[in-house]
Simulated scan of single mutants.
Amino acid sequence: MSTRIDGAAAEDRALAYLLRQGLQFVARNYRTPHRGGGEIDLIMRERDGTLVFVEVRQRTHRAFGGAAGSIGWEKQRRIVFAARHYLLRLKQPPPCRFDVVSMENGALQWMRAAFDAG
Rank of each mutant, 00 (worst) to 15 (best):
N105T: 05
E55W: 15
M103L: 14
A113L: 06
I71P: 04
Q109C: 12
M44F: 10
C96T: 05
L51E: 06
R112T: 08
L88M: 14
G37M: 12
R57E: 11
V80R: 04
Q21F: 04
E46R: 13
G22D: 02
A113H: 03
A8G: 00
D41P: 05
A113G: 05
R77S: 03
Q109N: 13
R59A: 15
L90Y: 01
R4S: 12
D99E: 09
C96Y: 11
V101Y: 02
R97Y: 10
E39Y: 03
L18V: 09
A14S: 08
E104V: 15
R45Q: 14
I5S: 13
V80F: 02
A63M: 11
W110L: 14
W73F: 01
A67V: 00
A117T: 04
N105Q: 14
L42C: 08
L87M: 06
T60L: 13
E55Y: 12
D6N: 13
V100N: 02
S70K: 13
R77Q: 03
G118M: 00
R4T: 09
G49L: 07
P94D: 10
R78C: 10
P93R: 06
R4F: 08
L51R: 14
I43K: 01
R47N: 08
L42P: 10
R28F: 11
L19K: 05
T32M: 12
E11I: 11
P93Q: 04
E11H: 05
K75M: 13
F98D: 07
I71Q: 03
M44V: 06
V56S: 13
E46V: 02
R13S: 11
N29Q: 12
V101R: 12
L108V: 15
H61S: 14
L15R: 15
L51V: 15
A114K: 02
I79D: 00
N29F: 01
H61M: 11
L23I: 03
R28A: 15
L88G: 00
E55P: 13
L42A: 03
L42F: 04
N29W: 02
R112G: 03
F115Q: 09
L88V: 06
G49D: 08
V100T: 08
A27R: 06
P93I: 06
S102V: 05
E74K: 07
L15Y: 06
R62M: 10
Q58R: 15
